[in-house]
Computed example of a mutant assay.
Amino acid sequence: MEELQQGEKFCQQRWVSLDFLTWLCIVVAFFGSILSAFNICTGGCTAAHEYRLFGLSFATVGILFSAVLAVLNHLRSNSQIIHGVFAMLVSSASGAELFFLHVQKVEIGQWCAVCITIATAVFVLTASIFSITLKEICMKWRFRKLVPLVIMTASFVVGLFVALAGVQQPAFAEEAGNIWFGKKNSKVEVYFISDWFCSYCRKTEPTIERIAPSVGKVAKYTFLDMPIHRETYEFIPFHLSLLVGEKRKYLQGRRALMEVASKTRKPDETVIKNAMAKHGVEFRMADFSTIMKLSNEVTSILLSNGVKVTPTVLIVNPETKEKRILSGTNQIQEPYILAAIRNLEN
């Protein structure tokens, strides 16, 4: 009897501190989600904004979920059922956050301080509720009271799998392999290959802009970077993001990149976004995995086809393995490109 009373006293002493910690975690998660919603966060969080959970942004889900938790936390002392629902939601949120961290690490390739803070708050909140549930067990000393802990563990697993099923990549990431413009079912592929600091490439740009629509009527085409100048490596992530993220205004965005390249050799995302905005382009940085995947594909195309100079137009029929390479401002002309496409179609 005395041992039971001591156990109850110990549990009661922990109640106040755990209750305070629970409220603190909910508040941190709520305001962290608000910061995320207003883009007051780091680059990794900016990339996370493009992801969705069953169509809703992570920030929206965080705000709504935190508000629901606050209401339930206020009412749970009056009802064991509400307390149980609260514990299940918290545990499931912890499982979901574990998967969200996986997305940041593997898919986005960047960590966000705000997102990590929210995840930490959720994990601490889960531990707090777990301890409160243990309080109920240690006061009753009945084996059947272990059932809530089993339910919390099951909820954690459910939350993990719900996040796995519900998380949707950015729209442009879903088409990460789609780098094409023009006639998508064409047998012929046309690659416009250039370097951002090549003077001859700059002279060829107006010609490429003019003939691209004509090329698109008879073949599919795209644009590749070949870093003759080392500084072009700095622009490749931005160009690839533009290529898969904003096809409708790609040429406007390309002009913006050219303007930036004429002013600086080491741009940052803010400079790129501002330059794009002047041309009516809403720039979004692609996630790290998409950039790496496309960079490897571009390197493979250039090496396998023996492209060594810029500017170059590479025209290929993947089925027959035939190709034509047109290099320099004199060869990169509409009649030559269209004639090469016709020859490779047959």
Rank of each mutant, 00 (worst) to 15 (best):
R284V: 00
P267C: 04
K135H: 09
I211Q: 14
I132P: 00
L242P: 05
S17R: 08
A127Q: 14
I337S: 08
Y200T: 12
V124D: 05
A96G: 06
F58R: 00
S92R: 01
F156S: 04
R142V: 08
A47R: 00
F20I: 06
E50G: 01
F161A: 03
V90G: 00
Y250D: 13
A47N: 10
R230M: 05
V313P: 02
P267Q: 09
T312G: 07
G95F: 00
P311L: 13
P227D: 07
G280Q: 03
K266S: 10
V218H: 06
R230Y: 13
D225T: 06
Q104F: 00
L243C: 11
T264W: 14
S33D: 06
M292W: 07
K247D: 12
R284A: 01
C138F: 13
G216V: 11
F181S: 02
N317M: 01
G216E: 12
H102K: 10
P335R: 06
E189M: 08
K323I: 11
S57T: 14
F54E: 07
E334L: 03
G32L: 13
K273L: 05
P206I: 03
I179T: 08
I82G: 03
A173E: 15
E234V: 09
V103K: 02
I341T: 09
V68D: 04
S57E: 01
A48L: 02
K145D: 09
L101R: 05
V316P: 12
Q12L: 13
V260K: 04
V271M: 15
N296G: 11
I82E: 11
W23H: 14
F156E: 10
F288L: 04
N78Y: 11
I315R: 04
K308Y: 10
I332D: 08
G245S: 11
Y336K: 09
D268P: 10
E107W: 02
A173N: 10
Q5A: 12
D225Q: 10
R230L: 12
P170Q: 04
I81T: 14
L4G: 02
E259M: 07
Y221E: 10
N346W: 04
K323G: 04
L4W: 03
